[in-house]
Amino acid sequence: MSYLIIGASAGLGRSLAYRLAAAGHDLGLVSSDGRDLEAISTDLGARYGVQVVSIAAQVGGEDGYLDELTAVNQRLGGVKGVLFPIGFIFDNDDGTLDPSRAAFVMKTNCLAVMSIVARLLPKLKEKPRAVIVGFGSIAGSRGRGVNVVYAAAKRALASFFESLRIICEGSTVHVQFYVVGFLNTGLSFGRYTPLRKADPDRFAEVVVRNLEHNVNTAYYPFYWRFLCYTLTLLPWNVYKRLKTTGPLA
């Protein structure tokens, strides 16, 4: 059995790659830098003896990589699942991002996921059991003053996965979506987080364990479900104050 990981060179994606390889799965890995991917691929091969194929593709740019992805899918004998731990933030994403950067953030965090799903879904549906796993963010739960386009992309992604679940209802494809809190990875390094960052290895363990189970939407760490719910219930004026002058500012 093999899996595709989009955003596999670092953070959660890297942890997922190690967990899946340790369980004996062949892998297709995608991220933008060939050197990082090469290092991970050879390491996984040497440690676990699995087959690893990598594609260095800037998914925020042109779509040429989609054909490569199809080829890799074939080479791996048709993957059993696709995981999307991809994420990208510009530091000055405060509502003033220029159009090309805003487009890049939207494409990387959301549109590329949609394109890849569109390309692979027909093949996945041919499998006796397949899984698509998306990773959203607590940033997408309500409006905010930083990472503005990123938050919008993640909210769009959540909507897309909800629709995908409806589309895949009755098929062999299971759709899982995680709303992710702070993780101790490069994405959040050097950024202030009001709560402790979770360990991506632990999270990856949970994700891999759940691949065989029916998970719809899950929060990680779990308490974010309550926090996000509370945030959405807050009256706008209170939320606005919290975000501008309060602890969430």
Binding site: S32, D33, G60, F90, D91, F189, G190
Partner: peptide, 13 residues
């Protein structure tokens, strides 16, 4: 500038 996009060096204490 790397891989076609700007990355800011971020540090923690």
């Amino acid at each position: 500038v790397a891989a076609g996009r700007m990355d800011v060096v971020r540090l923690e204490k």
